[in-house]
Amino acid sequence: MVRSGPMMHLSPALDRQRAGPSFSGLMELYESNYLFLRRLLPEAEHGLCRVSPMARGAALHAELLESTPYTRTYFLTHQFAGGAALGPEALPALRVRIYYDARVAEVVGRGRRGKARDQGPSLAWRWRANRFLNRWLRFCLGEGHRFDSPVV
């Protein structure tokens, strides 16, 4: 279900169920992901690790992995409390790169570390990963997550 309001609106290209992935649709996803990430991380240039705790539900974590003059790569995940022996569980655990000059953001892999792209540069993988990121970011923003201050 798509929530109402300008922040939660999807364009027709992003919400097509039957249409397959396209380059133009992927670029639109990248732009939308950038806008959602800028709302979630309004001052992304400050701090290495941030936590957005919630009274109900799992805390959202953002860890800065890499920073260059025009890009930043973050590890984003929800931290779920596990059993006493298991410890916390981190899901979905995505590496996301924000390109500030181009105003786009994309999933570049799974987990905290790994290859630049876990599944190769295929259009189908990028479409699935970034469509998931787009929906996850909308969910997080709708739940009230926001990173305002870094964790020391």
Rank of each mutant, 00 (worst) to 15 (best):
R128W: 04
G114Q: 06
E63T: 12
P6Q: 09
R95K: 03
F139E: 15
T68R: 14
S32A: 15
E28K: 10
W136I: 00
M8Q: 15
A93R: 10
V152E: 15
M7F: 07
S149V: 15
L64C: 12
F23A: 14
Y30I: 00
Y34I: 02
N33M: 06
A90S: 08
S149W: 15
Q119L: 10
L123K: 03
G83F: 07
F147N: 04
R39D: 05
S24V: 13
M54F: 11
R126L: 09
V51N: 06
Y100K: 01
L60P: 06
H145C: 10
H78T: 05
A19L: 14
W125Y: 07
M1S: 14
R97F: 04
S52G: 08
E31C: 11
F147Q: 05
W136A: 04
W136P: 00
K115V: 01
A102F: 09
A116Y: 01
A81K: 13
D118E: 13
Y100T: 07
F147L: 09
G82P: 03
R16S: 15
E66P: 05
P53N: 09
F147Y: 10
L76V: 04
S22T: 15
E106R: 06
R72H: 14
R97D: 00
S4F: 15
E28Y: 06
L86P: 00
A58Q: 14
N33V: 06
G87V: 04
S52D: 09
R103G: 00
A90E: 09
M8I: 00
R97Y: 01
L41R: 07
A85Q: 09
S22C: 05
G20T: 06
T77A: 11
E45S: 11
Y34E: 03
L37Y: 02
C140N: 07
N130K: 02
R126M: 08
C140K: 05
A44C: 09
C49D: 06
R128G: 01
V51F: 15
A81I: 12
L29K: 04
F132M: 09
P21V: 09
A59S: 15
E43Q: 14
W127M: 03
L60V: 11
R16D: 11
L94D: 01
W125R: 04
L137A: 01
G82R: 07
S4I: 12
A58I: 11
E31K: 13
V104W: 01
P21N: 06
L14E: 07
D15V: 05
E106L: 05
E63I: 09
M1Y: 12
L76I: 05
L141C: 06
R97A: 00
E106S: 02
R110W: 10
Y74D: 00
S22E: 11
